[in-house]
């Protein structure tokens, strides 16, 4: 048997949640979809005294778009809703794709993206795409809010930048410039229901000439204790022209910056081989998407 959490509370409004959490955050865990939390509790890796269920708070649901601010996804939105959202498919197709590949259909109807990033597993599905989009997190607590770029959210294995009493309220994906796109590529052992052994999110932005590279972001998962960006490579790629030299530099750079380990899912050597291939495919897909966007 698992050890029992002593208490369960289900606040009816965001305001009520914030006041409960402000008072009891030390002993409490926020419960969203529970697809990570309950597994940890059942495996006795975690024994919270209090679960605060935010899964039905209406204020935390929904997806919206605004040409200036981009796509806003509230923290309690289900992965299945993100997967199906016409707004996400239009403005962040790589995120819709990553969502569609998270767990099983049941898991997707239960799980949230906030749970996915707060669990802070380096193999998680959505962080590489969110990093590629340079997503901004809206982090809140009773009486205050702050924004944080997702690139500063993951501190170490299962550790995030949230302070006691803070929670993730929303995700903002800024609008993409005209000649830019994001893509997501992953490699698992099976097609479905598999924790990725590697995944990568890529952002590519071209100059007005359509061949020079303005900006690249490359976010890698499962090659270190957190999902992180290959920032040295990103800098090197800036200003290059699209072509074989660019792709080769991107792949070499990513392999240099990745720090994979051997584990049950793959060897470090294999991961190094595959990460280069995924990087190339991700950047090619970005190029393709940019072409499509320009018709």
């Amino acid at each position: 048997m698992h050890s029992e959490p002593i208490e369960y509370e289900k606040p009816a409004s965001l305001r009520e949640f914030e006041s409960i959490y402000a008072a009891k955050a030390e002993d409490a865990k926020i419960l969203s979809g529970g697809t990570d939390l309950h597994v940890l509790i059942k495996e006795k890796l975690l024994a919270p005294r209090l679960l605060i269920d935010i899964s039905d708070l209406p204020e935390l649901r929904g997806i919206s778009y605004d040409p200036v601010r981009g796509v806003t996804i509230m923290a309690g939105t289900k992965i299945a809703e993100i997967e199906r959202s016409p707004l996400v498919k239009e403005h962040a197709p790589a995120l819709a794709f990553a969502a569609a590949n998270l767990g099983s259909n049941q898991v997707r109807w239960m799980a949230t993206m906030a749970g996915n990033i707060c669990h802070a597993s380096p193999a998680a599905e959505t962080p590489p795409v969110l990093l590629a989009h340079d997503c901004e997190l809206l982090i809140a607590r009773q009486g205050g809010e702050r924004t944080l770029p997702i690139s500063r959210f993951f501190l170490s294995y299962r550790k995030t930048a949230l302070e006691t009493g803070e929670y993730v309220k929303a995700f903002r994906l800024p609008p993409l410039p005209a000649r830019a796109a994001v893509s997501y590529r992953f490699k698992g052992l099976r097609k479905a229901m598999e924790i990725d052994m590697l995944n990568i999110g890529a952002y590519l932005e071209l100059g007005e000439d359509g061949t020079s590279v303005n900006e690249v972001r490359l976010a890698m998962g499962s090659v270190g204790p957190v999902t992180y960006r290959a920032v040295v490579t990103e800098q090197k790629l800036k200003g290059m022209r699209i072509g074989e030299e660019f792709f080769a530099a991107a792949c070499d750079g990513v392999v240099q910056e990745a720090t994979p380990i051997d584990d049950v899912r793959a060897s470090a050597q294999y991961r190094n081989r595959v990460i280069g291939v995924l990087t190339r495919r991700a950047l090619e897909e970005c190029l393709h998407r940019i072409g499509e966007r320009r018709g």
Partner: peptide
């Protein structure tokens, strides 16, 4: 353990009954 909750397929082994 799949059941439908408000029509959505849900895993009842990792869902609290109180919820």
């Amino acid at each position: 353990c799949t059941v439908l909750i408000d029509g959505r397929p849900t895993l009842s082994c990792i869902t609290l009954a109180v919820a």
